[in-house]
Design a protein around this nucleic acid. Sequence first.
DNA 1: ATATAGTTAGAACAGGTGTTCTCCATTCTC
DNA 2: GAGAATGGAGAACACCTGTTCTAACTATAT
Lengths: 213, 213
Amino acid sequence: MKKLSDKQQRMVRYVDRFLSEKGFPPSIRDIQRGCSISSTSVVDYNLNVLESRGIISRHADISRGIRLLNKSSESRDVLTVPVIGMIAAGEPIPVPTPDTWDVAAVSDTIGVPSELIGGKRNIYALRVKGASMVDALINDGDIVLMQHVNAVENGQMAAVWLKSEKEVTLKKVYVEPDKIRLQPANSQMQPFYTESDNIEIQGRVIAVVRQVN
Amino acid sequence: MKKLSDKQQRMVRYVDRFLSEKGFPPSIRDIQRGCSISSTSVVDYNLNVLESRGIISRHADISRGIRLLNKSSESRDVLTVPVIGMIAAGEPIPVPTPDTWDVAAVSDTIGVPSELIGGKRNIYALRVKGASMVDALINDGDIVLMQHVNAVENGQMAAVWLKSEKEVTLKKVYVEPDKIRLQPANSQMQPFYTESDNIEIQGRVIAVVRQVN
DNA sequence: ATATAGTTAGAACAGGTGTTCTCCATTCTC
DNA sequence: GAGAATGGAGAACACCTGTTCTAACTATAT
């Protein structure tokens, strides 16, 4: 990939700054003035070069129809997800209540890029306590992003409450004839089988975030 | 505060959707068509109402000069981190170059809440390929946030290149008399010892992000 | 009913803005 | 040096688009 000319780099920076300061893209004549370019056709020419390199996208005949690509362009905002409690092997996980969504009632929150959540609803977070989830490749202190659901599709990772064992575990859930197969995320580990009426789906695992040290 | 009319609510939703889908604001005639409004002057009229209520801001005589206000307060900062390659057991990890930070050169990026990074510099991301890192509780497909450094403090998790084994591994690094101890994150696993001149620190692990399913 | 504020319709105007055309300058290749 | 490739200048055109004007239509209160 050939390097961008000095002028083209200035233009990209200008568009970026303009966009974040004003909230809408610059017109060609804005770029012309902002980058001290003598003619609109020069701007047009270089914008076409930038588009052919996939750095921006343009929309013909649309004012300010410039868009910076490569910028995780879609909803690059952070959602604030409440960390409503701990998850450990020996106890059921906390369940979100209407109260939980009150800003005041939650002591801890975590910022999450909205792309990780992808529009899902009923999202909350739990902090993992203890090393009982290592077979799900989840460590002590990790944050698990959960979606509050009562059932999951085959193969989805879920927080499962084992009634007779009085234990919660994070496993991929497969419904098989007459029984349930709980498969650890670590494929080197053995699956676990149990009766369908021994389990209770407490939530679906959306993502795991671990901050090291 | 008086309630917004049905039409005004539709307009706000339309602007929001348009903005996140296209990356630039709609024109008045876009809104007119999108909300099935009969006249541009009606759009103009209601936009003025919305502006006087502080819901949007407009810029006179500027095409598509509409901006949604309440969004800025919610979107805390996300850093866009380049995903510059893969990390696998058998090969050295890609190292960031000045080129890598070029907007054009990076194909993939990930949004990360700035709190995860905490002001650190030289951050990049790698996608994990293969299951060779399970003893670091890292799965195939996980994203590893790295900091480009040449040395780490005792006990910090690092990407270590083992020269004689020709292998990269993610371990906690401890300097001991005459040798180096590489400790897996999974405390149930055994540490690995090697000579100090057999290793090369390629970067420090900042965080791990796993998106499930 | 009358008045008033709020809202809508339709059209036209004027400036903003993307586009394009022609000519020119520089650099590189052969 | 001829020619191609790249980049630039200036102007003009045509459409996009914000704005404005007039007239009419609701709704509510007087």
